[in-house]
Each structure stands twice: as structure tokens, then as C-alpha cells.
Amino acid sequence: MAPVKMYSLSTCSHCKNTKKFLHDCNVVFDAVDVDMLQGEERTAIIEEVKKVNPNCSFPTILIGDQVIVGFKEKEIKEALGI
């Protein structure tokens, strides 16, 4: 399965639902709550998000080389091939 990376916010309901969905699908993923970061690390991660999603909205999900913005269950499933 393609590597899954997610940029999220600790307070965002769509992000929480996406995390729950991925857990329920037994998908191993790497998530970073951008609001919990500070200083240079935060700036660097924001730049990473903006590269794939100029609106810098959350969740931004990377599945392999595909970028999915928002909790779009169908698109996530398709990208995961499940």
C-alpha cells in the first residue's frame, strides 16, 4: 500500500473523522497536527502543506503521490485501493 501522510489539526472535526476512518480501515499512516507545532518546525511543515495545497486547509492527505484535501471518504478509499 502507498505510504499515507496526513497534515491535520488537533481541534478539527474533519481531521478527527479522517483519522478514525483510517484507523477503522487498518491503514497505517503518519499524521502531524500542525497547530501543535512551534517555531521553525511549524514554518517548515506549513510550507510543505502549501506546496501540495495552497489553501493550507486541513486535513491534507497524501496517499502515494495523490493529494486529497478534506475528509472525502470515497476518494481516500479509491487512492488506497480498498
Binding site: L9, T11, C15, F58
Partner: peptide, 17 residues
């Protein structure tokens, strides 16, 4: 309420303040 504590105002929880 958490954002109110963090920032002093209730910023949208679904956006990066």
C-alpha cells in the same frame, strides 16, 4: 474553548489560526 485559552479568542477549530 481551547482556542480561547490559547489565543484569547474563539478561532475556528477547523482552520490553522
Amino acid at each position: 474553548l481551547l482556542n480561547k485559552d490559547r489565543f484569547g479568542y474563539m478561532a475556528c477549530p477547523c482552520r490553522l489560526a
